[in-house]
């Protein structure tokens, strides 16, 4: 049970991070100067109380702990579920998709893997600069525009964001239930709506920027 609480809390931390990250990305619509200033400001956040990049490193450490905890709990819980239920438990081929479960609920494990792989690629591209599709640039805004001008960069982004959307559609609601919310039928309906809205806002919010670059709205 403790693992499920870890799963829920670490997941919600990451949702919070995604919302902040999406807000930052949308600064691309304010132009190169605003975006680069924002990007630079992240490194000065919390100064002079914190050392340079201090706040950024706190965010990175919290996030890293959340990611590791989330994956660790997911692996243990998945293994337990495979033992408890069995992998090919019923012989019949009928009703394999369950009675009422959502499509999103099937994608938690596979989608989580897709997201994890994407995050590694994403960091390699825009944080570590190991790969520079579309060409390099000293400006974060320049790297963003150069990257999203390449079709396959956008395609990978779309795949990852759809996985994130389905992950959140089920994950946000599930996390809240695990933390004891939704003890009435009405509260549960509110939570379902909240999880759908969160999934849509994050998926659409993140996809606005790459498609704007691809369509030439952001240059």
């Amino acid at each position: 049970m403790a693992k499920k609480v870890i799963m829920a809390v670490s997941g919600l931390i990451m949702v919070g991070y995604l919302l902040a990250h999406m807000y930052g990305n949308l600064k691309a619509f304010s132009g190169m100067q605003a975006f680069d200033e924002y990007s630079h400001h992240l490194r000065e956040l919390g100064e002079p109380i914190l050392p340079p990049s201090g706040a950024l490193w706190i965010i990175r450490v919290v996030l890293l702990v959340a990611v590791v905890a989330h994956i660790w709990a997911a692996v243990l819980l998945a293994r337990r579920s495979w033992t408890s239920a069995g992998v090919n438990r019923y012989e019949t081929r009928r009703n394999r998709r369950g009675i009422q479960r959502t499509y999103a609920s099937f994608t938690l494990r596979s989608g989580g893997l897709v997201i994890a792989l994407f995050v590694v690629y994403h960091l390699a591209h825009l944080t570590w600069h190991w790969i520079e599709p579309g060409g390099s640039s000293p400006s974060p805004y320049g790297r963003l525009v150069a990257g999203f001008s390449v079709w396959w960069v956008v395609a990978l982004y779309v795949i990852a964001l759809l996985a994130v959307g389905f992950h959140l559609r089920h994950g946000v609601a599930s996390a809240l239930y695990t933390l004891g919310a939704g003890t009435t039928a009405t509260a549960r309906q509110v939570i379902v709506v909240l999880s759908i809205v969160t999934a849509l806002v994050i998926t659409v919010g993140f996809l606005l920027v790459p498609f704007s670059v691809l369509l030439g709205v952001i240059q």
Binding site: R80, S84, G98, I99, T178
Partner: peptide, 11 residues
């Protein structure tokens, strides 16, 4: 196993 809040049980 652990509950993943899918709701097949209630169905």
């Amino acid at each position: 196993g652990g509950c993943t809040n899918i709701g097949e049980c209630t169905a």
